[in-house]
Amino acid sequence: MIPWVQIDSAKTPDGAQELRLKRRGAEFSIMLGSNELMNSRLSGSEQALARLACERIAGRVEPKILIGGLGMGFTLRAALAELGDDAGVVVAELVTAVVAWARGPMAEMFVGCLDDPRVTIRAADVGQLIRSERATWDAILLDVDNGPEGIVHKANDALYGAAGLCAARVALKPGGVLAVWSQGPDAGFTRRLKQAGFAVEEIKTRANGKRGARHIIWLATNAR
């Protein structure tokens, strides 16, 4: 079997942990300690995050999408495939090394999508971008951790609490969608979404098409 080779590493924003980019043949993995955050062979649920959110806002003129977390670009590429030429997509990625990996060792995976004229990459905290806007986004897609708990960046916890969800609702246009990816269910998060005034769908999906681990996507619609 081909062994894994570490290509690069980067500190998490708080400096307490280390992200590691590894490669085995054509396969990539991003690790946090002993936890695999993402793998290039497993993209089904991240693609579903974008597809389902874009379906909910289909037909809007010049839609604006905010994606929290670049990762391996699964969500970004899926969103671009669903959106028209008039769309604008902002990707907030706090770990600048992840963007460098996308343009460097993983460039073939990204197939030039970072240079798509619809795309803007922001080296920023997605929570700060959300809090700075009002009725701006047609959809906000969050895939910044393994679910509604800050693992990579503890400040991400604020995205999923009552104040963070209220800020997201304010940042969305009427009928806009907050879509959140998670490795598993979280009844407390579903409850907080409803308490923040969202109409909530909780969708089960697979990590790799019809196979692989079961993941959860929340689609929370700003009904105002």
Rank of each mutant, 00 (worst) to 15 (best):
R131I: 06
D85E: 13
G112Q: 10
L83V: 04
L114G: 13
A81Y: 07
T75M: 07
L165E: 09
G104S: 04
N146E: 11
A78G: 10
I130Y: 13
E149P: 07
L70P: 09
F110C: 03
A107F: 13
G161P: 08
D86M: 01
R60Q: 09
V95A: 08
A87M: 01
A97P: 15
L80S: 12
A158N: 09
G73M: 04
G71C: 02
R134S: 12
R77L: 03
E108M: 04
A100P: 13
V95M: 09
A92W: 14
G88H: 14
V61Y: 15
E108R: 13
I121H: 07
V152Y: 09
S132F: 09
R131T: 14
G161D: 15
D86L: 00
L159N: 13
L141I: 02
E133L: 01
E149N: 13
L76E: 03
R118M: 01
K154F: 11
A139F: 04
V98S: 08
G68R: 01
R77S: 13
A97F: 10
L114V: 07
E149Q: 10
G147E: 11
V89H: 10
I130K: 10
Q128D: 15
Y160F: 10
E82F: 03
D86N: 05
G69N: 06
E133D: 12
G88T: 10
F74A: 08
D157P: 11
V95I: 14
L83W: 05
A87Q: 09
G127F: 05
M72N: 07
D157V: 01
Y160P: 11
E62S: 14
F110K: 05
V89S: 02
V99R: 10
T136I: 03
P105H: 12
F74R: 02
V90H: 11
M72P: 12
H153N: 12
V144D: 02
H153C: 11
L142G: 07
A100S: 13
L94Y: 14
T136N: 13
R118H: 09
I67P: 02
R122H: 09
I65W: 00
W101M: 06
D86C: 02
D86A: 05
G88S: 14
A158E: 15
V144L: 03
R131Q: 15
K64M: 01
E108I: 00
C113N: 14
A92N: 12
V144Y: 02
E133K: 00
V126K: 06
L114A: 11
R60C: 04
A162H: 12
P148A: 10
D115F: 05
N156H: 14
P117Y: 04
L70F: 06
E149C: 05
G164E: 14
W137L: 03
N156S: 09
G84H: 06
G104D: 12
I151K: 12
G112Y: 13
L159M: 09
G69S: 05
G71I: 00
Y160T: 02
D85L: 08
